[in-house]
Amino acid sequence: MVESTIHATQAVVTLDVPIQGIVWGSIITVNMWAKSIGTGVVFLASFLWFRHSKEDMPNLKWTMPVIAFLALNVFLLFTLIDLHQPYRMVNIFLHPHWTSSITVGAWLASIFLGLVSVLMFIAVGEKFPGVPFKGCLLTKFGRNNAGLYEKIMPFLVFLAIPVTTYTAIIMAQASARELWQAPTEVMQMMWAALLAGSAALIFVSSSWTKEARKDLSLVLALSTFFSFGMYMSEYFFSFKSAEAEAILAYVHAGGSYNIEFWIGMVLGFIIPFFIAVGNMKSDNKTLLNFAALLALVGLFLVKDVWLKIPQMLPLS
């Protein structure tokens, strides 16, 4: 009889509605993905300025804050639209609860965006005096305070670290989702930022020297390699709780998330790694741009899977 074929503990749920669906969905994935770009370009810019003269990357001074500004605004927009009461976002600033990493992160990210905006006004004001229009007070302020750029940059790099990693702390506080309860999440966020930052800057690096582009390739290769390694470790190694094991077993068994995960791995990490390594020998801008595009798409897919799968486990 079919009843006797049910194994486990011979216990079958016959009435319950436990799963609320994917509550944190692709909106949150975009949020994390855009934040990786926003902080990643800051890390990469500081690394490149440390290694090379400014003349090697002539447009980096203004492209970095512009990319970071756009990415961070996408990040904040998607944070806002994910809220069920978006206008009450202001409560985070009026009634902050400091044990919550969501609060701490919102404050840090807001300060970070403020500093990035100042850099953007300075750099754009210098480079494009007529943008967005003649007599713009913000770009005028930037031009008059150009010296602030160098002073703000070290603080920005320092602040980029907690802004990159606080999402991992949110995930750690989301204690119902065992898959996220790993210290490796912090490093995954850091590698994601380096990957996304290097990929984003590759798109604006056509006028840079070969050596500068080689460094971008190096960071892309390293970040894809270590991201892949960390995801594989988490995917296969058996060190997690029973809940995390159960959800990984479900993904291992196949299904749409399994396919999305492996497409992300191949597109985001494996192919870009080999292109980036090859590009360190022979400079091919087109191939490198292709690798950067794949890396960003793949990173999104992998983050999406990792965000959604723990939410499929019944909690009761």
């Binding site: 799963i19 509550v23 119902a176 989702r177 019944p314």
Partner: peptide
Amino acid sequence: IGCAGCMMACPYG
């Protein structure tokens, strides 16, 4: 604010 952080945190759903 409807961020659903609590839904993610509650181990009991």
